[in-house]
Computed example of a mutant assay.
Amino acid sequence: MDAGVLARADEAVALLRALVHLESPTGDATAVGEVVALLTATAATLPGARCRTVPSAGGPHLVVDVPGHGAAGALPPVLLVGHADTVWPVGTLDGDVPWREEGDVLAGPGAFDMKSGLVVALTALAVLAEAGLDRRPARLVVVADEEVGSSTGAAVVTEAAEGCAAVLGFEAPHADGALKDARLGSTRVRLVVTGREAHAAVDPEKGVNAVDELVDQLLAVRQRLAAVATEHPGTLLVNAGGVSGGGRANVVPARAEALLGLRFGDADVEREVLGYLEALVPVREGATVAAEVLSHRPTWAPGAASAGLLAAVRAAGAAVGVAVEARPAPGAADTNGTGALGLPTLDGLGPAGGGAHAVTEHLRVTSLLDRVRLVAVLLHTL
Rank of each mutant, 00 (worst) to 15 (best):
Gln217Glu: 08
Gly91Cys: 13
Gly70Ile: 12
Glu162Trp: 00
Ala356Met: 13
Glu159Asp: 15
Glu205His: 13
Ala267Cys: 07
Leu218Cys: 01
Pro89His: 07
Arg50Glu: 15
Val238Ile: 12
Met1Cys: 07
Pro344Lys: 09
Trp99Arg: 04
Leu179Thr: 09
Val221His: 06
Arg100Asn: 01
Phe112Lys: 10
Thr92Asp: 10
Val293Trp: 02
Ala44Lys: 05
Asn250Cys: 07
Arg100Glu: 14
Asp176Asn: 13
Ala201Phe: 14
Leu15Arg: 09
Leu219Met: 09
Thr53Ile: 04
Arg297Phe: 08
Arg373Ala: 12
Val81Asn: 03
Ala84Val: 02
Ala307Ser: 14
Asp370Thr: 12
Arg188Ile: 08
Leu346Phe: 10
Arg314Asn: 03
Leu378His: 08
Cys51Leu: 02
Ala129Tyr: 09
Ala301Gly: 05
Ala165Gly: 11
Val293Tyr: 04
Arg271Phe: 11
Trp99Ala: 05
Trp300Ser: 06
Arg50Asn: 06
Ala249Gln: 11
Asp113Cys: 12
Val228Asp: 11
Thr288Ser: 15
Arg100Trp: 10
Ser295Leu: 14
Ala144Glu: 08
Asn250Trp: 05
Gly132Ser: 06
Leu346Asp: 07
Leu294Val: 15
Gly331Trp: 11
Gly261Glu: 15
Ala305Ile: 05
Ala29Ser: 11
Leu343Cys: 01
Ala240His: 14
Asp10Glu: 15
Ala29Leu: 04
Leu214Ile: 07
Val157Gly: 03
Leu368His: 03
Leu106Ala: 04
Ala12Arg: 00
Asp181Gln: 09
Leu168Thr: 01
Gly308Gln: 12
Ala290Gly: 02
Arg135Phe: 06
Ala311His: 05
Ser367Gln: 08
Asp28Gln: 03
Ala111Val: 14
Met1Ser: 14
Glu231Val: 04
Ala326Leu: 13
Leu309Lys: 07
Ala267Asn: 03
Ala182Gln: 02
Glu147Gly: 07
Leu106Ile: 08
Thr42Asn: 01
Pro233Tyr: 02
Ala210Gln: 09
Val127Phe: 01
Ala333His: 02
His380Met: 04
Pro25Arg: 06
Val35Phe: 06
Ala111Thr: 12
Leu382Lys: 10
Ala161Gly: 02
Ala111Ile: 09
Trp99Asp: 03
Glu171Phe: 10
Asn250Ser: 13
Lys180Ile: 15
Glu147Thr: 08
Asp268Asn: 04
Arg17Ile: 01
Ala107Met: 06
Pro302Glu: 09
His296Ser: 12
Leu39Phe: 09
Arg314Met: 06
Val64Gly: 02
Val193Asn: 05
Gly73Trp: 05
Pro298Ile: 04
Ala290Lys: 14
Gly337Asn: 11
Pro253His: 04
Ser306Lys: 04
Ala121Glu: 00
Arg135Ala: 14
Ala7His: 01
Val269Ala: 06
Glu361Cys: 05
Leu237Pro: 00
Thr152Trp: 05
Val78Gln: 05
Glu159Asn: 06
Arg222Glu: 15
Val90Gly: 12
Ala305Arg: 11
Lys115Pro: 02
Met1Val: 12
Ser295His: 12
Val202Cys: 08
Gly339Val: 02
Arg50Thr: 14
Val238Asn: 08
Leu294Trp: 01
Ala201Pro: 01
Gly95Arg: 15
Ala121Phe: 00
Asp176Pro: 12
Phe170Pro: 00
Thr86Trp: 01
Leu294Ala: 11
Lys206Arg: 15
Gly342Arg: 03
Arg17Leu: 05
